[in-house]
């Protein structure tokens, strides 16, 4: 399925993209410059963009769940020692913020890949997040089972 909504225009490849710090910075600039994103390539089928948007929203919900979990740890584990409770809450809050920032970065990169007709970017983030949530969950089980008042 190619361009179906905008004027069909040959996709302009700007050459192989250098992976690394420079591209990460240019990604961040894209967040605030919609016109620059629209300059690249051609407009993909609107259904692809909407699917990308829903994926972004799903990651945003994951981020909000992590943030909510951070508050829940602080509010609903009152018997836990303060340093441990604060540490767990901060880990979850930071993971939530990181997840939200990564959500938009991934969304921008997917949107641009679709405009340029490139492969979608791959990422190790889901694995890392899964492992981190697993570790925190294990810690909380240990805290809840043995660490009351500790």
């Amino acid at each position: 399925m190619t361009d179906s909504s905008g004027p069909s225009e040959p996709s302009r490849h700007t050459g192989p993209r250098g992976d690394g710090r420079a591209s990460a910075l240019s990604d961040i600039r894209l967040w605030f410059a919609p016109e620059r994103l629209r300059e690249e390539g051609s407009t993909p089928d609107y259904r692809f963009s909407l699917a990308n948007e829903r994926t972004f929203l799903a990651w945003l919900r994951t981020a909000m769940a992590l943030v909510g979990g951070g508050f829940a740890v602080d509010q609903f584990l009152p018997g836990t020692g303060r340093p441990l409770r604060i540490a767990l809450a901060l880990i979850l809050l930071a993971a939530g913020a990181l997840c939200a920032l990564r959500a938009i970065s991934h969304w921008v990169r997917c949107e641009r890949a679709m405009r340029r007709g490139e492969d979608l970017p791959t990422s190790r983030f889901p694995i890392a997040l899964g492992l981190a949530v697993g570790v925190v969950a294990l810690l909380m089980v240990i805290v809840a089972a043995f660490g009351w008042g500790g």
Partner: peptide
């Protein structure tokens, strides 16, 4: 529907980060 604008996406992310 037109694609989501990066600015709106950034604002939604900013709300989440602000809550955290």
């Amino acid at each position: 529907p037109p694609a989501l604008s990066p600015r709106a996406a950034a604002a939604a992310v900013a709300c989440t980060v602000a809550l955290a």
